[in-house]
């Protein structure tokens, strides 16, 4: 029997994946005022995985942490309603880059001593795909990124990863860092009673300074612009017309 462990899950508040974002007319960034925000979809998968490990008797407690504005409390409540035990809000004003997030998480890891940290593979706003790898580096832990299967063993964890060409399985010493890919599981919906219960679960408030982390950005955003657009072309009436156009007009076959 493995020693019972805590699982830490970092969850990010992002623009809901169904929303078509708008770019501010002065090119200074993406409009976030009055836009529906949700938990980063990959983080829902990470929370679900932590809960399943706990339900399977592999973990004793699931702690969720979010680095962001006061409203990130809502994201933590969503995770608590899914079944996480308690939350930590590390309050910041502006956006925080993955490197600084990883440094803050390193501080949380030092405080909480989790056996496993499960992050999302990618935040769908910045599309960085780096925080988990960075946290692993900073804590000296092994990393199982893009996970589609996680099997906790005695003092180690086996992670099956989605890689180019197929799947790879690695074994990592605990404590370890895992990042969740889409096929890891299907996250549950929170039931109404659990949403009510979540309101009473504790959320601690911290600041980056509590962990001695400077969150000043390293990347200066010079501008944010619209991508080059694409216009709808023509509708063809038949397969033969399609083939003829691809051959004669577009010259691609």
């Amino acid at each position: 029997m493995a020693p019972l462990m805590k699982i830490l899950v970092p969850v990010k508040r992002v623009v809901d994946y169904n929303i078509k974002i708008r770019i501010k007319s002065d090119g200074s960034g993406v409009e976030l005022a009055n836009v529906k925000m949700s938990m980063n979809p990959f983080d829902e998968i990470a929370v679900e995985e932590a809960l399943r490990q706990k339900e399977a008797g592999k973990a004793t407690e699931v702690v969720v942490v979010s680095i962001g504005p006061q409203q990130a409390t809502e994201t933590l409540r969503t995770a608590l309603a899914m079944g996480a035990d308690r939350g930590i809000l590390v309050k910041t004003d502006g956006p925080v880059e993955p490197l600084a997030v990883a440094k803050i998480l390193k501080g949380v890891v030092a405080e909480e001593g989790p056996g496993l940290v499960i992050l999302g593979k990618q935040a769908i706003d910045d599309d960085s795909n780096q925080t988990g790898q960075m946290l692993a580096a900073l804590t000296g832990a092994g990393q199982g990124t893009f996970a589609s299967k996680v099997v906790v063993g005695d003092g180690s964890v086996e992670v099956t990863r989605e890689v180019d060409g197929g799947l790879q399985t690695v074994r990592l010493k605990l404590p370890a860092i895992v990042t969740a890919d889409l096929r890891l599981n299907e996250p549950r919906y929170a039931s109404l009673p659990n949403i009510m219960k979540a309101k009473k679960k504790p959320i601690a408030e911290k600041t980056p300074a509590d962990y001695g982390v400077d969150v000043a950005p390293r990347l200066k955003v010079l501008k944010t612009t619209e991508p080059g657009g694409r216009k709808a072309g023509v509708k063809v009436k038949s397969v033969s017309e399609l083939v003829q156009k691809l051959h004669d007009e577009a010259g691609v076959i």
Binding site: V30, D127, Q130, L219, K220, T224
Partner: peptide, 29 residues
């Protein structure tokens, strides 16, 4: 801090990269 997924090199430290599923392009230094 890594610069992920650069789509254009504007200078030795200045790059374009897509964010929000390519619905916006950021120029970062």
């Amino acid at each position: 801090m890594q610069v992920s997924d650069i789509t254009k090199v504007l200078g030795p430290k200045t790059f374009e990269r897509p964010i929000y599923a390519g619905n916006a392009i950021q120029t970062v230094e």
